[in-house]
């Protein structure tokens, strides 16, 4: 039985307090890349009752994604945007979701991200991460930007950190564990980094 919106919101207010929940419910977060980082950030924020998520990815669900990304085996081959939207709405039926099944690039960043209060960089390729960060810091300095670098392999969970780089730019990860060093991506460690990214969004909302 799916709860009515009022019941769902009341349960969130009971956990977070009415003031904070009101802020969360009125916040829009763009998630750029819906892989191990992005899909897990989305689930955390959906559970928190975020107002709206802007989900951006061009890719489809692949069998190699299932060990760390929030998709189901029955969703193989579906666009990640649609698959994740369906999964999120099963968890949190009253959040807003906008999807863009496209590759984020210099020429569409400002259009697709203009409504976001927070932008989560959740790509997997280093050059794409740097491109998005440079573009956002240059063209949309008013927005909070939460990026990630270094979460591959089996190294210590406690090396994953959140660092404040500028007043609105935060960086999560250990800064060095590169998937291209052949160490692979491990579900638990990628989820840790995603949780750092989602958590700093909520922490900023709680403190501003």
């Amino acid at each position: 039985m799916i709860p009515q919106k009022e019941e769902w919101l009341a349960a969130l207010e009971k956990r977070h307090g009415k003031v904070l929940q009101n802020k969360i419910s009125n916040t829009t977060v763009a998630i750029c890349g819906l892989g191990g980082l992005g899909s897990n950030i989305a689930v955390s924020l959906a559970r928190a009752g975020i107002g709206k998520l802007i989900l951006i990815d061009y890719d489809k669900v692949d069998i190699t994604n299932l060990h760390r990304q929030q998709y189901k085996a029955c969703q193989l081959g579906e666009d990640k945007t649609n698959a994740l939207r369906n999964n999120l709405l099963e968890i949190a039926p009253y959040i807003g979701i906008e999807t863009h099944t496209t590759r984020l690039a210099e020429d569409n960043i400002t259009t697709l991200l203009k409504d976001a209060d927070f932008i989560c960089e959740a790509f997997d390729v280093a050059e794409s991460k740097a491109m998005l960060v440079n573009e956002v810091l240059e063209k949309m300095p008013e927005k909070y930007l939460i990026a990630a670098s270094g979460m591959a392999g089996f190294d210590d969970a406690n090396l994953i950190k959140t660092r404040k780089i500028t007043s609105k730019f935060y960086l999560c990860g250990d800064g060095k564990s590169d998937v291209n060093d052949g160490i692979g991506l491990v579900s638990s460690r990628v989820m840790l980094c995603a949780a750092h990214q989602a958590h700093i969004v909520l922490q900023i909302l709680n403190s501003t």
């Binding site: 280093a126 960060v133 440079n134 240059e138 990026a147 780089i165 960086l171 998937v179």
Partner: peptide, 26 residues
């Protein structure tokens, strides 16, 4: 942020505090 287009002209000054954020894959 120092813009990419300014790397050739932006001069580092005495007392500057700089952070080079380097991204790795994953």
């Amino acid at each position: 942020i120092i813009l990419k287009s300014e790397y050739d002209t932006a001069i580092l000054c005495e007392g500057d505090i700089v952070e080079v954020v380097s991204f790795v894959g994953g």
